[in-house]
């Protein structure tokens, strides 16, 4: 074999070995564990802390309100739909991070009249002529609106 070819082959062998070594170092350990991606990325996505804790946890303390709620139209609605996420509240109940929404506009996000809303599914009022001066909660208990 001519000398220059031998040199070239040697050079190639060195480069390919170098490439394999560098590649080995650069590829994370968990790569390819489940597919063509870093397996640990799944764990990182799982590690995010959930903000919404679910109605069952609310009921552990607020069972009286829950009893009232489950007997009426708003039974299926999660507490956190109106009061916001409870993740801090369940750690430190006194901090009071939850909100008690007020005002006609808030109720209107679900109950204002809109042709896109199914009339049989949800009670709707025209906010601009339904007891304009009154706050909704003066007549309707939000936990039991028909009570």
């Amino acid at each position: 074999m001519p000398k220059h070819i031998r040199r070239l082959l040697l050079l190639f062998a060195v480069l390919i070995t170098l490439f394999i070594i560098v590649r080995q170092v650069l590829i994370p350990d968990s790569f390819g564990q489940f597919g063509h991606y870093r397996g640990l990325a799944l764990e990182e996505n799982k590690a995010h802390v959930a903000r919404y804790v679910g109605t069952d946890i609310c009921a552990e303390c607020h069972w009286e309100t829950m009893e009232l709620k489950t007997a009426d139209m708003h039974a299926e609605i999660s507490c956190e739909t109106c009061h916001g996420p409870g993740w801090k509240h369940i750690e430190e109940p006194e901090q009071g991070q939850l909100t008690i929404p007020e005002g006609r506009e808030f109720c209107g996000t679900c109950h204002s009249r809109n042709p896109a809303r199914s009339a049989s599914l949800i009670a709707q009022v025209n906010l601009s002529d339904h007891n304009i001066e009154t706050n909704c909660s003066e007549c309707h208990n939000p936990h039991a609106p028909w009570n």
Binding site: R51, E80, T81, P85, C110, N114, R117, L121
Partner: peptide, 14 residues
């Protein structure tokens, strides 16, 4: 019913 609670909760959750 287009209340947008899903969009709001998603922003807070994530």
């Amino acid at each position: 019913i287009g209340c947008g609670n899903c969009a709001k909760a998603c922003k807070i959750e994530n």
